[in-house]
């Protein structure tokens, strides 16, 4: 007995609109959580790809390029701090690489390829400068342009997800606001009686907010469970994606519904105080 009695006196949970709130919190929380985790997964994929691209630079040399010039170029490049090593691609490997583009009876001499293993701090401009000085006919495979365009694509996808997340949070705020308002207005008499026996506005608001918190926690648990199940389903269906599901994906999958829960509580506190004051 005690505060429980007051809590029972102002029971908003029995209101059908609160059941709707709970369902919406589960569904929208799931949507936001899945969207957020997907974008983090995409970010992981992008980072991994970006690292691979940035850590490997190919230099294509004409077939007739002298070995002495190649050695000289190799030596100069190895002096650069961001170049960890240089691999001379064998002719068989080059042939294998070019096979799809050549006819069976080709008599072309195969180009020579140098594969540079680099660090994150790769200076493409410097590599280009060295290569053009040593062997002007050589071509450096500079991935900067494609890296930039992919980066823009990823940022765009992230921005879209952010906008969708904000829309979801706005919709949730609206639903919480409407349900709290409707719930308290439907219980106007109960609120009045509590006020007559000496309950303060804050006390009554806390009674209402606790019930929204209860709904939000159910929404949080429900949406998190749905997201976890969805991620597992995705991993089982496409095992290749498993390596992208890092700790940050799980973190977002849990934190987004928790954040929605927090938003719901704050909105309900604000609305409850306003409605009670106007009672």
């Amino acid at each position: 007995m005690s505060v429980k009695t007051a809590y029972k006196a102002l029971s908003l949970k029995s209101d059908p609109i609160f059941k709707l709130l709970m369902t919406m919190l589960v569904l929208l929380g799931w949507l936001a959580s899945l969207g957020g985790s997907s974008i983090i997964g995409l970010e992981n994929l992008y980072k991994e790809w970006n690292l691979t691209q940035k850590s490997r630079v190919n230099i294509y040399l004409l077939a007739q390029t002298e070995t002495k010039s190649i050695d000289d170029l190799t030596q100069t490049l190895l002096e650069q701090p961001y170049i960890k090593g240089i691999k001379h691609i064998k002719d068989e490997e080059t042939a294998e690489l070019l096979e799809p583009f050549l006819t069976e009876d080709h008599k072309l001499e195969l180009p020579k390829i140098l594969e540079l293993q680099t660090t994150k701090a790769t200076d493409f401009e410097k590599i280009n400068e060295i290569v053009s000085q040593k062997i002007p006919s050589a071509q450096v495979d500079d991935p900067t342009e494609i890296l930039n365009s992919i980066a823009s694509g990823v940022r765009f996808a992230e921005a879209i997800t952010l906008v969708i997340s904000l829309v979801i949070i706005f919709v949730i705020s609206l639903i919480v606001s409407l349900t709290t308002r409707a719930g308290l207005r439907a219980q106007k008499r109960q609120v009045e009686i509590l006020q007559f026996v000496g309950a303060s506005d804050s006390f009554i608001a806390v009674l209402a907010v606790k019930q929204v918190l209860f709904c939000s926690l159910i929404g949080f648990v429900g949406s998190t469970m749905l997201t976890v199940a969805s991620i597992h389903l995705i991993i089982n269906t496409w095992p290749i994606l498993a390596k992208l599901v890092l700790a940050n994906v799980w973190f977002v999958a849990i934190c987004l519904p928790l954040f929605i829960c927090l938003v719901a509580v704050l909105v309900s506190m604000f609305i409850a105080k306003r409605v009670i004051r106007g009672n």
Binding site: M1, S2, V3, K4, T5, A6, K8, A9, I193, L194, V197, G198, A199, F203
Partner: peptide
């Protein structure tokens, strides 16, 4: 519970 209501808003009975 109706009778206890004024006391219940003050905390645990």
């Amino acid at each position: 519970e109706n009778v206890a209501l004024p006391l219940s808003i003050l905390g645990e009975l």
